[in-house]
Design a protein around this nucleic acid. Structure first.
Length: 431
DNA sequence: TCTGGGGTCCTAGGACCC
DNA sequence: TCTGGGGTCCTAGGACCC
């Protein structure tokens, strides 16, 4: 048996830990730039708000209904996520982190009869030790566990834990689950499946393997197998131990608060992305052999001239130092930039990651220079880590985040910044 | 006259996930 | 005025290899 822990309305729940006033009112959390809603409390959902709503379209409704509106505070969410995962690992011995708010747990360590009780204990401990409400689904495959966790969240009678542990419950769950709610079936596939009368999970599960392969493809067949109780999606590929395989791609991109037309401003934005992405590379002990830069005009404004393009640049040898990345990225930017457009979004994308340790050096590179750069970046990282801002030292062509992104309603860094720790004032003599 | 069969790697694009 | 960001896998097609 495998379990899936899913944190309820995760970003909102993180905010509610440190701000009890938010616990009784509808709350939404916005994306970068305060653009869209990315997380909502149940009260906000009840008002008709949905994930993905552009904020400007629902701003009035939010104000009218006294919705608490927050900008995303991702350092806080990352830290709370770590606490959840650590708490689970302390009970179960291991945990497979799937996303910031989800993890898989191996339930085979308990006898079948004790699975639900063990699950309840995990949920209780996360609530008590971290302060986040969660839902737990338990089943024989990950796709079924996902379905079970939806039931656990949706129906209070389950008291946060739902196990699909026999054939009757599996059939019943598949009958009640719409096909679009199945893990791996998105909007497009819902449309593709509709003409075949496949509207619920049970319809897909009951088709033949050949049919499924014809209508979908090999990934569809895996989903079909999982729905039928045959486990075939490997969680070892999403292991998180020290031997975690390196991810395959990395991307850093942003939308701008206002369109950018001047090349110089775009170059400083690319300088920022280069800074962020090379820091991530160093943190993971990885290096990039090449990168591409993309720029895009505002596609929500068809009345303006549209242009989007990307350009690839190889690096002379795999690198993770900010200067080398920024240099290649700037060169790529020069290749794609066209005058006369207002750019809304830009980014750097790396798809050739390798381990920095085992990188193949260039025959013509200078080992002494390589070592100097490595030590320089080490020093920069150390200084930036010890300062309150992440970016005390940075390359010259760099634009601080605040200057181009809106994040007007961000909460404090309650758990990761010393100045933001909650202060409690005790008063004596009944005052 | 006639032009195989079995591979790999890379890229772009499409689909999905949270 | 105003519409997120960071990933994954799969497929098809082109270029190349022996």
């Amino acid at each position: 048996m495998v379990g899936l822990i899913d944190c309820n309305n995760f970003f909102v729940s993180c905010e509610r830990i440190f701000n009890p006033r938010l616990r009784t009112v509808p709350v939404v959390v916005l994306s970068n730039n305060d653009g869209c809603i990315v997380a909502l409390s149940n009260e906000a959902k009840a008002l008709g708000l949905r994930r993905g709503n552009p904020y400007f379209q629902v701003k009035e409704l939010c104000e009218r209904s006294n919705v608490a509106v927050l900008s995303g505070n991702h350092r806080l969410y990352g830290d709370i996520s770590n606490r959840v995962m650590t708490t689970v690992a302390a009970i179960t011995g291991s945990v497979k982190v799937y996303s910031i708010d989800e993890c898989f747990i191996d339930f085979n360590i308990w006898p079948d009869a004790e699975v639900v009780a063990a699950g309840r204990e995990i949920v209780r401990r996360i609530r008590r030790d971290v302060g986040v409400p969660t839902s737990l689904g338990i089943a024989t495959t990950k796709t079924l566990a996902k379905i079970a966790s939806r039931f656990a969240k949706k129906y209070s009678a389950y008291r946060c834990v739902c196990a699909i542990d026999n054939e009757y419950r599996r059939r019943r769950a598949l009958e009640l689950t719409e096909i679009g709610d199945v893990w791996g079936i998105g909007r497009r596939l819902v449309k593709r499946l509709a003409p075949y009368g496949i509207t619920h999970a049970v319809h897909l599960a009951d088709r033949s393997r050949e049919d499924v392969e014809k209508i979908l493809n090999i990934t569809g067949v895996r989903t079909w197998q999982e729905l039928n109780g045959c486990s075939c999606i490997d969680i070892d590929t999403i292991d998180n131990g020290p031997d975690t395989p390196l991810q395959k791609q990395m991307c850093c991109s942003r939308s701008f608060a206002t369109d950018i037309a001047e090349y110089g401003k775009l170059e400083s934005a690319i300088g920022l992305f280069a800074t962020i992405i090379s820091r991530h590379l160093r943190e993971r002990g990885a290096a990039a052999a090449g990168l591409s830069v993309f720029i895009q005009t505002n596609m929500h404004r068809p009345d303006l001239p549209q242009y989007s393009a990307s350009a690839y640049r190889p690096l002379p040898e795999p690198a993770n130092d900010t200067m080398a990345i920024a240099e290649a990225a700037t060169e790529a930017l020069r290749a794609v930039y066209r005058k006369g457009y207002g750019y809304k979004r830009a980014g750097i994308h790396i798809s050739e990651l390798c381990s920095a340790q085992h990188a193949q050096h260039s025959l013509f590179g200078d080992p002494a220079d390589r070592e100097r750069r490595r030590r320089l970046m080490q020093a920069v990282d150390a200084i930036n880590a010890s300062s309150l801002s992440n970016d005390s030292i940075h390359i010259a062509s760099y634009m601080p985040v605040e200057s181009h992104a809106r994040c007007e309603k961000r909460s404090q860094l309650f758990t990761t910044r010393i100045d933001d720790i909650i202060k409690v004032n005790f008063q004596r003599n009944g005052l």
